[in-house]
Amino acid sequence: MSEREQPWSDDPVRQGRILVLTDNPIARSIAVIASTVGRTVVVEAADDGGPGLHPQSGDAVVLCDHDAPDAPAVLRAALASEASYVAMMASRRRAAGLLEDLVAEGVDVSTLHVPAGHDLGGKGPGEIALSVVAEIVAESYGRTGGPMRG
């Protein structure tokens, strides 16, 4: 009898935290999905950045509210940190003004994921969160997140 091959590893996954700014339906869905895949999630409920997210090496930072009063400061700090992934929930059009301001200040926004997530076509908070968590997981393994068939 041959041994069955399992498509997963039982080895513990050691990845950075997922830091999410502003408690809203997408943030809560990110927390559920990311927790399910074994990631530690910190949701900062205060839309002014609260006490601060303090990203560390390997962390992912997701700004779920581009209209948050402290959005520019959060992005500035995250992009200057050792976070491995920094993203903002916003359309390119809605993000344009904020990005222009950051670039004018000399902030390098080349690594900012905006809009956050993979293009899955989802519209609901859970579907959007799934696309963001999928992008974070793919990036953490150096993958693009495309189809496995090929």
Rank of each mutant, 00 (worst) to 15 (best):
V86R: 00
L98K: 02
A45T: 15
I26T: 12
G146C: 10
L21H: 03
V13C: 07
G150T: 15
I18D: 05
D47W: 13
A60L: 04
R17L: 13
R92W: 03
G145F: 09
G126N: 10
R93F: 02
E5Y: 05
R143I: 12
G124H: 15
G49N: 01
E44Y: 05
Y85V: 05
P125H: 07
S140V: 06
V103Q: 14
V32E: 15
I128V: 14
P12H: 07
Y85D: 05
H113Y: 04
G97C: 03
V133D: 00
A83Q: 01
D47M: 14
A134P: 08
R28A: 11
G142M: 10
V32G: 12
D119E: 14
I26G: 01
V86Q: 00
E5R: 12
E135R: 15
E82M: 04
Q15R: 15
V41C: 03
P12R: 07
R4L: 14
K123W: 12
G145A: 10
A104N: 08
E127M: 09
M148W: 11
L120N: 11
G106L: 09
R39Q: 10
S84L: 04
L53P: 00
G16L: 06
P115F: 05
I33S: 01
I18F: 10
R4Q: 14
D70I: 03
V13G: 03
L79P: 02
R28W: 09
G146N: 09
A138T: 08
P12W: 05
E105G: 13
V41A: 05
P72G: 00
A87D: 10
D119G: 09
S35A: 12
V132N: 06
R14N: 12
A27C: 04
L75R: 01
S35Q: 07
G97Q: 07
G58L: 01
V20C: 03
W8K: 02
V41R: 03
S81L: 08
M88D: 03
G124C: 14
G121A: 11
H113I: 00
D119T: 12
G126S: 13
P72L: 02
G142S: 11
A46K: 10
Y85H: 14
